[in-house]
Nucleic acid binder design. Structure first.
Lengths: 204, 204
DNA sequence: ATAATAGTTGACCGTCTAGTCCACTATGTT
DNA sequence: AACATAGTGGACTAGACGGTCAACTATTAT
């Protein structure tokens, strides 16, 4: 009973967009409310703070993304092809983002995590947990590639961390330089890091 | 004539520390002035805005760092050793930072660049120019390693960009996770990316 | 010594911000 | 129809914020 509302989802959409296109620090509750078309009274009805809203919004957005990543990293896809497809996916997403906002915006977890990690502990933990999930996809692909004799990586978990560092670094470079072309080097660099000799997989 | 002052350098020191340990967005002019022990009137006597102060501070700090990097990347040092030493240098600096602030703080250019790139154009350009200089050190080392037959990299400029993405990605991971150990994988990952077969250079 | 000047100080202003409060409204349930 | 209740609106506060200003002070060249 009582009335129903879509204010919660509108607030979550708004905060993600504002943080991603700008930054966490410059995104105020007033801005979020304006963008969402929701009054501040309603904001505080649903959330305690900007940090809590951001954490919930990040989580919801991650639940959506998981579906796509489960497809890309499907166990029935050859392991190196998963990584190749993942790079293509990132390139495609950033391309759409650039078409929409006129800018490459990179990885929201990295940008936000880097900004708030010394200040917002709960938010930071949420980001860390999402990154841990991403790590699992990559580690599993590396393990499977090892088993298939496509790779010879001694410590897949460590290598997955190195691979993520590279991928995230490229995404951040692309954001800072606002240059989509940077991401073209994603797959080649990743395979070079993994120690794959020659890559004849399809390019983006 | 007139009196002399160290307020300018105190402000520049303060803003760098506040941005690095926190973020650009949450660093206010009042905070900067408090930390520097300088009144706001003096702030506006020397600078027009937080962005201008940050840009000048970044530049000054870069001029200091150049001296160290010129040593590390000296042309008389074997090229792969330069890269090895550069990784060790980064590890050492972050270790000192962690001892001082209780946190790994990563690369200031990346954190700040990532945060302000959509909002502060002048600052963003300054950051970009510093990153371009860093790129030159690495590209030159790769070129020299090629010439010495230690590497066989077809496009040193592109490879330098990939290497920087990896290094910056690791530094950002280390900041977000507040984990110094992450940086242990810096040199091995870098050499793997470059395609060096076996690394028997000294470890950190 | 003193005048010119580089730098300092604190009071001040308007605006933005996080957060509160409560009367009000729409909706599902009975 | 009407009641309980989920959600809304908007006015309000206190403090933080960026920015200004004019009076003041220390230094140094002459």
């Amino acid at each position: 009973m009582g009335r129903v509302s879509d204010a919660k989802v509108k607030l979550m959409d708004a905060v993600l967009e504002l943080i991603w296109t700008g930054s966490y620090g410059t995104t105020t509750i007033d801005h979020i409310c304006d963008k969402a078309g929701v009054k501040k009274g309603s904001f505080y009805y649903f959330f305690d703070s900007k940090a809590q809203l951001a954490a919930e919004a990040l989580d919801a957005s991650w639940q959506d993304r998981r579906v796509e990543l489960d497809q890309i990293f499907s166990a029935i896809v050859p392991p190196l092809e998963r990584l190749q497809k993942y790079c293509e996916f990132n390139y495609r997403v950033q391309g759409e983002i650039k078409a929409q906002y006129g800018r490459v915006l990179g990885c929201p977890q990295v940008s936000l995590g880097c900004e708030v990690c010394t200040q917002e502990d709960a938010l930071q933990k949420k980001i860390q947990s999402i990154m841990d999930y991403k790590h699992k996809y990559i580690e599993s692909a590396i393990r499977d590639a090892n088993a298939a004799g496509l790779l010879n990586v001694s410590d897949p978990a460590k290598m997955a961390r190195m691979a993520m560092a590279y991928l995230q670094g490229l995404m951040t470079q692309a954001r800072i330089q606002n240059n989509l072309e940077t991401l073209r080097e994603m797959a080649p660099g990743l395979f070079s890091l993994l120690g794959v000799k020659e890559t004849e997989t399809t390019t983006v």
